[in-house]
């Protein structure tokens, strides 16, 4: 009986090591990719969504963590990430996307309609906003909290990872 317990314990320990290594590696990769993204986001210019309503990301980030999603209609990988972001946007979270160099607002709107993407979008046809934020690549996901970038990741992100990150920052929001 004792031997059996020991075996279970060993297996559990191996599992934990696997998990730890996975988390560590993905954290390191994200860290390396986000080296150009400044923590403090200063954006003086007023931003409007596709439907014309004004949005203040910094002010929103003092109410709840804000998921900011940089994407483009021409970015192949974004097609794998956008549906997950769209689903998150349908929930309780604040999600705002920024469409880079994807044409006029009317075009981006039509694209989102066609693909059934339900997130709010700020159009950045000249890629100026993204550059001001230090975003070099799409798809990039940032989490804004209390006016600061607390998390960022570029490339394919799993829906679970995305949700967990957001959930984590929502739980620790008032700390």
């Amino acid at each position: 009986m004792k031997i059996r317990q020991q075996r279970w314990f060993n297996a559990l320990r191996q599992l934990l090591v696997f998990l730890l290594v996975f988390v560590l590696i993905s954290a390191l990769v994200d860290q390396w990719r986000s080296r150009t993204i400044p923590h403090q986001v200063v954006s003086a210019e007023p931003m409007t969504l596709l439907d014309g309503t004004h949005v203040d990301l910094l002010a929103l980030s003092y109410e709840q963590p804000v998921l900011v999603y940089f994407w483009a209609t021409w970015c192949g990988v974004c097609r794998f990430v956008s549906p997950s972001v769209s689903r998150l946007a349908g929930g309780d979270h604040t999600v705002v996307s920024i469409a880079i160099a994807s044409g006029e607002s009317e075009r981006v709107h039509a694209y989102q309609q066609a693909k059934n993407y339900r997130f709010n979008t700020i159009n950045d046809p000249r890629n100026t906003l993204a550059q001001a934020w230090g975003i070099r690549a799409t798809p990039t996901l940032l989490i804004l909290k209390h006016g600061e970038v607390v998390s960022s990741t570029t490339g394919i992100t799993t829906p679970v990872g995305m949700w967990l990150r957001l959930q984590w920052h929502a739980l620790s929001f008032n700390d």
């Binding site: 191996q14 599992l15 799993t158």
Partner: peptide
């Protein structure tokens, strides 16, 4: 034995989760 079972679980669960997520995406 338990060790093989643990390996099965630790590889099976992420794979199945990923598969389920993939099928639900979109």
């Amino acid at each position: 034995g338990a060790k093989v079972l643990a390996v099965t679980l630790s590889t099976g669960i992420p794979v199945i989760t990923a598969a389920v997520l993939l099928t639900t995406v979109g």
